[in-house]
Amino acid sequence: MDISVVVPLYNEEESLPELTSWITKVMTENNFTYEILFVDDGSTDSSWQVIEELKEQYSRVKAIKFRRNYGKSAALNVAFTASRGDVVITMDADLQDSPDEIPALYKKIREEKFDLVSGWKKKRYDPITKTIPTKLFNAATRKMSGIQLNDFNCGLKAYRNDVVKTIEVYGEMHRYIPVIAKWAGFKKIGEQVVEHRARKYGVTKFGFSRFINGFLDLLSIFFVGKFGKRPMHFFGSLGVLSFLIGTFMALWMIGEKLYHIAAGIPYKREITDQPLFYIALVAIIVGSQLFLTGFVAELVTRNAPERNQYLIEKEIQ
């Protein structure tokens, strides 16, 4: 099968018939073998009934329904497991992503040998309250990941099948899938300018909290990707540094007092009366705790069943 079109959705009953018809038209015109995989993320409207009706009309439609709303990342993760196409295309169900972009994305994967191609909505129809935070997050993600993409969170993406079968998406991680793919060893990541259409039906399902969650997830990806198998390197280094700084400050104060005593110079302040003493004490305690945290994390990591699981690209026997 050439293409799996993955469409996560939540309360999109009005747009589904038009979207399915549009995808079918594009696939037929380009002679693709395909499947359309809807994942209903616990919709409370009649989206699932609409999908059941579409299945009767379009044989290539497949669908999964969650019992409750788990989020877009969960929907994508389940769909990635179920997809069978050589190329997997993800797109939103609100008709803001154009199915006409599918052939160009497919070509970049199959002919130009990209692992992942992310859409770039260069001209957006979103309000400024959404576009400005998005630009800031994209800039922060570029800086931390080293991946030069303009739009990490674009729902319209194309993947080689082995990419989606390798990565795991959870929490709010769907916005950082290119970063997850890079940490998994897929380095040929590209970008394609795509059309962004104004929302035709309904309202957006994402609130301001997604920006806070997105930032926390970015930190999680960075930490797990870099120190997931060696947490002692992170916590131990910070702990030793903090402990040494605290110890140095404590020894400095003790040395200063001994110098005054040896030289017969009156030492008017007690060590415990100095703010620096408490700063040194906190640094020593924090350093010890960080070191112990790294030690415990290292023990947990070494006993994890996947501790020695590595991604092998090729093998000759």
Rank of each mutant, 00 (worst) to 15 (best):
M1F: 01
E14W: 01
W22A: 02
K25D: 09
E29I: 05
E35N: 13
F38V: 03
F38M: 09
D41N: 15
S47H: 10
I51V: 14
K62D: 01
Y70R: 11
A75L: 10
A82V: 13
D86P: 03
V87E: 03
I89Q: 01
D92L: 02
A93E: 01
P99N: 07
P99K: 02
D100H: 03
E101D: 07
P103E: 01
A104P: 04
L105Y: 04
E111R: 14
E112D: 15
K113F: 11
L116K: 04
K121T: 13
K123P: 06
P127I: 10
P127M: 11
I128E: 09
T129E: 08
I132P: 02
P133N: 06
P133I: 04
T134N: 10
T134A: 15
L136F: 11
L136T: 03
F137N: 02
F137R: 05
M144A: 14
G146H: 09
N153I: 06
K157A: 10
K165V: 06
T166F: 03
G171D: 09
E172Q: 06
R175I: 05
I177R: 09
A181P: 01
W183P: 08
W183M: 06
A184K: 01
A184F: 13
K188Q: 08
K188E: 00
K188T: 10
Q192N: 05
V193T: 06
A198S: 13
R199E: 03
G202M: 02
I212V: 13
L218G: 05
S220D: 07
F222D: 08
F235A: 13
L238V: 08
L241G: 08
L241K: 13
F243C: 13
I245L: 08
M253Y: 05
G255K: 07
E256W: 09
L258S: 07
Y259I: 05
A262K: 04
I265Y: 14
P266M: 03
I271Y: 12
D273M: 10
D273K: 12
Q274N: 15
Q274E: 09
L276V: 12
F277K: 14
F277E: 11
V282K: 13
G287S: 08
Q289E: 07
L292C: 07
G294W: 09
F295N: 04
F295L: 11
V300M: 12
R302D: 08
R302K: 15
A304R: 11
P305E: 08
P305L: 13
E306K: 03
Q309R: 04
I312P: 04
E313V: 08
K314T: 12
K314A: 09
E315F: 08
Q317V: 14
